[in-house]
Design a protein around this nucleic acid. Sequence first.
DNA 1: GTTGACTCCGTACTCGGGTACGGGGTCTAG
DNA 2: CTAGACCCCGTACCCGAGTACGGAGTCAAC
Lengths: 151, 151
Amino acid sequence: MNDLTIGALAKSAGVGVETVRYYQRRGLLSPNGAHKGAFRVYGNDELARLRFIRRAQSLGFSLDEVADLLALDEETDRERARAFAQSKIADVESRIRQLTEMRSALQGLVSCCEHTEAPAPCPILHALANSPEPPPAPQGKARTRSARQAP
Amino acid sequence: MNDLTIGALAKSAGVGVETVRYYQRRGLLSPNGAHKGAFRVYGNDELARLRFIRRAQSLGFSLDEVADLLALDEETDRERARAFAQSKIADVESRIRQLTEMRSALQGLVSCCEHTEAPAPCPILHALANSPEPPPAPQGKARTRSARQAP
DNA sequence: GTTGACTCCGTACTCGGGTACGGGGTCTAG
DNA sequence: CTAGACCCCGTACCCGAGTACGGAGTCAAC
């Protein structure tokens, strides 16, 4: 049974110590368990759980959703898990559609810009200033952070 | 010259009053201008500017980027505007790629689930618990708020 | 002349997923 | 036995784009 300190656990899962502690605060990992001396030690089960969290996250599940996933039972909750995944697919697809629309609007502006002659006002800025389109909905950014650790 | 109060301006652009004031604080709209009595009045130029902001935002530009766009000159900054739009396209495309990967991973899980017989443990939860994949990078959500106003 | 809707201004809070900091305690190698 | 690395715990802060709230002033209509 390999006993990991929080630092070793974090490193094995590719996250920071603070992140582990944050997951504990959120209730995704249990904060009380075996101690060796004054320090808590973590086993393979907890490492697996931590990796589960990261995998689910990388598939687009929020930490709240990950908590729900963790509460499912591998034996009896197949239906629920599948429904969950399917609704997440729908979710992802709608975000893809939105982005695709944004891209084509932007491409429209750029190609318009490329086809107008030099001494004309910028068609992109002009379109932004005067476009007849209704201003629909802005959207947040999907920032992608990568590797943590090792400063 | 139609003079709008802040509330009328906001409504014409489909945003909330607080949003207008927020843009003023961010320097996207000027906070000092004509007054009629004790209240500030806004003209068509300011309405146009506000709509510009929303349109750019809906194309994926952050408010900081919108500020840069607003600083461009329609006559002399065509190059810059086009480069800006092009880099935003690249941006959007990379988000699309990410989401597409997420979708196919999810679809893999679901179809695997559909092809295994009933009395087996849930393949989705199982995969999340044991997948060999390296846990790469999670990603933030592109939440899409829509119309504001009208509570 | 008062009611109700609106404006002004400032500060503080929201959400999500962490990161940073600081003062202590502890563990281990040299 | 001491230095340096690590742990514990709590609190506060970051980002982006707003939203909420509260007190005070003001305006238009009835």
